[in-house]
Design a protein around this nucleic acid. Structure first.
Lengths: 91, 91
DNA sequence: GTAGTAATTAGATAATTATCTAATTACTAA
DNA sequence: TTAGTAATTAGATAATTATCTAATTACTAC
């Protein structure tokens, strides 16, 4: 989970996730939504991929990025487990 | 949410939350579970407080820290909303 | 008040991370 | 095979963050 939280700790990356949950996009299309340079976007995409929050699919010279909701579900389960199975003294 | 994710992005802080979900502890008691120095723990407690993940209660010369499950619930809702109300094209 | 303990604040340093420019890889199309 | 486009990698720099020591604040008890 640490990689996921680290990935989510940057607003640029959360914004990328918000874009990708609406529709899959190429690296270039993602880039268009930001004011930073392409290599910086690549860097963020790389961190998101590392955390399994997105995955890449190469098509010709384009790289399409897709959301991976499994990782989001992991966050949900982490929070749920924390909240409900949290402070038992006698497990 | 960004403050919360930033707070969760450090393993020490998540471990503190794990301790506090079992029971409330003083700063000193929390400190005992780690190998780093007290001011570093203070720093982490401060970040967790800032993210509303914990809150402090001063009692004499001790400061008792308590978990705040509301912030955890916010994480849960964020993930749930992301997952389920996510990619509508026509809202 | 003075000594002792709990905790934080201040200030410095080291480690990490975000961003940039320049160079490179991979593919497309004439 | 050369020119053009998409994307990443390499390497440098700036900003942020984690940690430390030293100093300070706040409280307790004699």
């Amino acid at each position: 989970m640490n990689g996921v939280f680290k990935a989510l700790a940057d607003p640029t990356r959360v914004k990328i996730l918000d874009l990708l949950k609406k529709q899959s996009l190429t690296a270039g299309e993602i880039y268009e939504h930001f004011s930073m340079k392409k290599p910086s976007i690549s860097h963020h995409l790389n961190i998101l991929s590392g955390a399994q929050l997105i995955y890449a699919e190469k098509k010709g010279q384009f790289v399409h990025y897709h959301i991976n909701l499994t990782a989001i579900q992991d966050v949900m389960r982490w929070a749920m487990k924390f909240k409900h199975e949290g402070g038992e003294d006698d497990a």
